[in-house]
Amino acid sequence: MARVWKCSGLRWSGDGPVLVWDGGRPSALHRGKRVAFEVADAEERTCVGARGHACPSRAAVPGRSTGARCEECARLERAHSVAADRNADDPRPYHVYLAWFGPGMVKVGITAVARGSARLLEQGAVCFSRLGTGPLMAARRAEELLRAALGVPDRIPYAEKRAVRSALPATAAERAAEIGELHRRATALGGWPESLEREPFRPVDHAGVFGLAGLPPAVGEVGELVAGGAVSGELVAVAGPDLHLMTDGAVVVLDTRLMTGWGLRPVRSTGGTGCTVPVREFRGPAGVQDGLF
């Protein structure tokens, strides 16, 4: 019987995206690779815990949850996040940035300087530019200022990001134009925290890293994994937590956060591609969407 593995999620490293398994074993994700796994029969999805600790109750979690945490573990995880603003004396410097995901789809955010571009890769930002660098609370105040003054959010749903990936402008200059204008407006604002050092506009483009050039429109996305269900396809792009897989002649998106908490193993059959898990079909053409190996 094939060994059952637990996925810890997708991580972005200097060498590109990797799936990490319990115990730290990585699986590199390069385009053209065959991704094929199935959920162990009679398997139940269980909470992945919080802050590096296992869930004490091994609680069951819904298949559609991207967090894969029970209510108590999710509360504990949120309480220690940067977004919770409960660590005002964090001594690390932070970047304030503008990230672009598609036309009219820009967000403002902050990330620790030590993380480099990792946070932007994790979010699936097609391009971004830093606005300033400084202490956590100064960066947070600047983020709030820019949200209000520029009318940009600090979060964009992944469903909206997925809907436009196959129809983005062709050149890096075109993709950077919108955040370039917002950067200009941002630096002209008054009220910036004095401890925040402003940075010039230097756009960083991730379209090549993600593999978005010539990406075929996706026909749908995996809604959830189920016991005994299988996913098999050729990897054509990776953006944020999403794998774009060519399955049965069409592209389906798999959010790797849906894999956590399940016991997974290699598919029993060889060859062929396809999904025997629930897949939500996209309505209409790309850009008008509603909603181990």
Rank of each mutant, 00 (worst) to 15 (best):
G49K: 01
A114D: 13
D154S: 14
L243A: 09
R268M: 11
G233D: 12
G14V: 02
A79V: 08
R185Y: 11
A148W: 08
A40L: 03
A239S: 15
E224M: 15
L146A: 05
S8G: 10
A139N: 04
C275M: 10
R198F: 00
L150V: 05
L292D: 08
A54I: 03
L76C: 13
A213V: 06
K6N: 10
E234R: 15
V48W: 00
S195C: 02
G211T: 08
N87D: 13
A172D: 15
W262L: 12
R51W: 05
V279T: 06
P17N: 05
V164S: 04
S129N: 01
V288Q: 12
R265H: 05
V253P: 06
A42Q: 15
G261A: 06
K107Y: 07
E194Q: 15
F37M: 11
G24I: 03
D290N: 05
A186T: 08
K6C: 03
V126G: 02
L168E: 12
K6Q: 15
D89S: 12
V209Y: 07
G208Q: 09
A68V: 10
L254I: 01
F201C: 10
G228W: 00
A36I: 00
K6R: 15
P217F: 00
T276V: 11
V204Y: 11
L98Q: 00
L212P: 12
R265Y: 05
G229P: 02
A2W: 13
R198H: 11
P135T: 06
E43T: 08
L196N: 09
A68W: 13
A213F: 11
A227R: 05
V35N: 06
